[in-house]
Every structure is written in C-alpha cells, then in structure tokens.
Design a binder for these strands. Structure first.
Lengths: 190, 190
DNA sequence: GCAGGTGATGGGACAAAGTCCCATCGCCTA
DNA sequence: TAGGCGATGGGACTTTGTCCCATCACCTGC
C-alpha cells in the first residue's frame, strides 16, 4: 500500500470499523488503525479530531437533510408534520446498501460508553439544527424544542428497526410509523 | 496537609472545581488537582474513573429522588403529573446553599464539550431511571419514554432559572412552571 | 525538461490521561 | 505488641493527542 493511495479518510474509517468489530473499540489502538490503512498515526489525527470521531463522519449531511426537509414541508404543515418531512428527507442518507454498515457501526457504538457519549453530543447538536429549522418556519421556541425532541426520539427508533434482520422496508416508512406512535402517545400524557 | 486527612474525595472535588473555574478544565492537569488536595495522582484515579467524573458525583442521588418521587405520586396521577412529582422530589438535592456551587459547576461543564458529553450520558441514564419508575406505575412504554423526555427537558431549564442571579424561588416552583410551559406546548404540536 | 509551489504524509519528541503494581503508612484488633 | 486492613504514595508503562519539520508526489510556469 503505497504512500499516495487515494481516499485516506475512507480507508481509515473502514479500517477502524473493521478493527472495532474484530476486537472491540478499547482494545484497538489508533496506531493499529493507521497501520491497517497504510498510514501513520499522525495522519489519522490530521483527518479526525480524536479516536471516537472516526465513527462519526457524515453528521453534517444529516443536519443538512433535516434542514431542507423542514424547509420544504407544505406551507400549512403542523410542527410535527415538519419533523415528519425532516425524517423523510433523511432517508437519502440510508440507502439499502448501507444497512450492514449501519448495523455494525451501531453495535460498536452501543457497546462503549465513550462512543455513546459522543453519539449523544452529536444527537444534541442535530436536535439544535432541527430547532433552528423549525423556528425558521415560524414555530415558537417551546413547541419547536418539543417537536424536535419527538423527532429525535423517532429517529433512532426507526433506525434500529431499519437494521433489524430481514427488514426490507425503507427508512422513511419506519420513521413515519415511529412518529405516528409517538403522536398517539402524546394524547395519553395527561 | 498530612497524608491521613479525612474526606479525600470531597477535597478532590473542591480542588477540581476551584481549578477549573480559575484556569479552565483543559488547562488543569489531574496531577495539579491532586496536589492542591494534598494527594497523589494515583489516589485521584482511585476515587474517580476519569478526569471528567470528578464533576459528576451525586448522580445516584438524583436517580433515587426521581424514583421515590414517581412512586409516591397520587394513585390517580397522570404520567405527566408523576413526572411533576419526580421533579418536586428532586428539590431535596438543591437547597439554597448549593446555588453557587451549581452555578459554578454548570458554567464549567457548559464551557467544555468533553464535559457536555458526560453530562448528556448521565442525563440519558437518568431518563432511563425515570422511564423505569413510570413503567413501575403502569405507564406504557411509548408514553413513559415521552413523559420522561419532557421531564428531562424541564429539569435543566428549571435548574438554569434557579441559578439565575437574584432568583430566590425554590427549585420545585420553577420546575412546576417549566413543566406547565411544556404541557401547554404539547397541544400545539399538531 | 526543469525550478518552484502546494498539499498531504511520515516520523519523532513531547505532555497529559489512565492503568498497574508494590511499598508504605496509620489505625484497629487480638 | 504483632499482625491485619484499607487507604495512600509513587513510579513504570501504554495510549491518546499535539506539534513541528522533513519528505514526497503532483502541478504549474518557464
């Protein structure tokens, strides 16, 4: 593997996920990831802020999809409908070919507290993006925050179902179901 | 400061908070915290899993208060009312003397992503505690999760108001207000 | 074809976080 | 007074993450 192969970033991400699956996140050193990708440790840290971040590429994409999804919702859409539009838009990030990748990544992240922490931070930042998009559409602060929170409860739930073995439906359909489930639950809060 | 002074753990927590306020979390080494507390670095790690954890003592107490609060809510309480009871119960953890401490700690945590991550992880675990307590009271899963999420939206909001300069009201009163605010917002989700 | 610029990489020195292990110390008890 | 026990000191070690400089491939203008 020569020094100037392309896609250094992608190679690092793949090597990292493979190693994490093989022997776990904690038992894998950054130097080993770099080595498997044919790169040096310092190059790893040039591409990723820290060891965790190698599993969190593409978060900006999700944010953009959320934003455009909300922006393109019908003019008379309720706040919850706007969140629904955001979830439908995010389907673009989850084509069928990525099912296995998402499955592996989720398993690795859920198995380690450090990674769950980072996931929660990313989630919080995405909720903030959603809130901003909703406010842009004229939704008042407490309602926007609440709707965004519902959306981000539906999102991981839908993702979990999407990666269940044998599941063939598209992400958007599952997300719609999860959101409807939450919508129904709202009435029972009291 | 001799070797066998009591309260090593508390001394470490105080030294850490002081140093974090003085020169920031990242610019403070664990060795310095230990030194100010009259202890060795290895002793620090015997009391706290890592550098972050020194700011997160007492999380178990909050969990217990949440649990007993929900358990002691009136028999005919709605899910949201149970969450309200949990928030009232948690007031025991926030007597007036702790306002300054909470203020300082919050400022330090919010100023650093590593600490915000840890805070989010603790929050997630407390939400889980709330969900379990609600299910114990017969609240079905999606509703319980939703109610707990509302509660954990009201909690930091109330805490933020509680630490505002000049604020004299008790935590429970502010929590009630925040929960009512969210309750009103629920109707506008659509 | 050659000189120089540019951007990505290699590699090593370094500080701090975190682990591990053993010696040491003060207290308590038989 | 000897010995046990739990907490601490302290140092060696691994890993993460930072910093800096040399190196390399490629591209451009001459």
């Amino acid at each position: 593997m020569s020094r100037w192969e392309p896609n250094a970033r992608e190679r690092l991400q793949q090597a990292a996920l493979d190693l994490f699956v093989e022997r776990g996140y904690e038992s894998t050193a950054v130097a080993e990831i770099a080595e498997r990708a044919g790169l040096a440790k310092s190059t790893f840290f040039r591409h990723f802020r820290d060891k965790r971040e190698v599993l969190f590429g593409g978060g900006e994409l999700l944010g953009e999809l959320f934003t455009t999804g909300v922006a393109q919702a019908p003019g008379d859409a309720t706040p919850l409908a706007m969140v629904g539009a955001a979830l439908e838009a995010v389907q673009a990030a989850f084509p069928a070919e990525r099912r296995d990748w998402v499955r592996q990544r989720t398993a690795v992240v859920q198995a380690n507290d450090e990674l769950r922490e980072r996931e929660l931070l990313k989630a919080a930042s995405l909720v903030e993006v959603l809130v901003r998009a909703l406010r842009e559409r004229g939704v008042a602060e407490p309602v926007a925050r609440l709707a965004a929170a519902l959306g981000y409860q539906a999102f991981p739930a839908a993702l979990a179902r999407w990666t269940e073995p044998g599941e063939r439906r598209e992400f958007a359909e599952l997300a719609r179901q999860e959101l409807a489930r939450l919508h129904a639950a709202v009435a029972k809060l009291g």
